[in-house]
Amino acid sequence: MSSPSSAPLLEVEDLTVAFPSPAGPTDVVHEISFTLDPGRSLGIVGESGSGKSMTSLAIMGLLPPTARRTGRVRLAGREISSLPERQMRRIRGDRIAMIFQDPLSSLNPYYTVGLQIEEAYRAHRPNVTRRKARQVVVEAMERVQITDAARRVDHYPHQFSGGMRQRVMIAMALSTEPDLIIADEPTTALDVTVQAQILRLLRSVQQDTGAGLVLITHDLAVVSEMADDVVVMRSGQCVEYAGCEQLFSDPRHPYTCALIDAVPQLEDDVGELRAVGDAGPSRGGER
């Protein structure tokens, strides 16, 4: 899969995240490994509590202070999991950009979207003038098809619709031309027609920029449309890691089989849906 000449864009090796608990440290992510090449996309799927979001935060170095991370994360061959915060900060937002689930709460209500995008851009280019930065912001907003971008830069997040807010988040991620975009449930809070637009946008952005994409979602159908490779997670463990077609046409692990079976399909004729064993308490609150 990887080109022989250069290292893969992202290598995650035995990544483990543990939280302290009365019964000793508990792993919420346990020895996850995968690689991602430039321009490719990797899906991480799992139900609520599977540890998929923690995996993304662990890559970004944004875990809560009580969490313990072990294992290695390499970006283009350079180990970033052992970097001190000052250096990791330069990578965050610049080389790895992140898009979150709920675009309304992920944008600060007190500042215009233009300022928030500009902030991402200028955080890594302190010498750039505001005029130049603003031009970049407007271009990024135009790139994610926000119409009338030159006027909309000065609007506040609450003046945008859900889909438009997520476009703002994507523009923010794009503005720094990152090598890797991590999207954590980017369409879960959106209506289905808006979801289709955002997914299309993500794909075209990826094609234009050649960035790698890690897509975290609970939705197997979304993964099947977006990913080249898929990691299936359950209770912090990777149960299956395979190419997308392989995973969906010939799943090996019983859990993967059960999960795919449980997905209601538009084309299916109606039969009894097969259920996966109700695996322990799950709050099912991610949707």
Partner: peptide, 8 residues
């Protein structure tokens, strides 16, 4: 609001 498996 339910996970797919539970939803089924």
């Amino acid at each position: 609001a339910l996970d797919v498996s539970v939803q089924a």
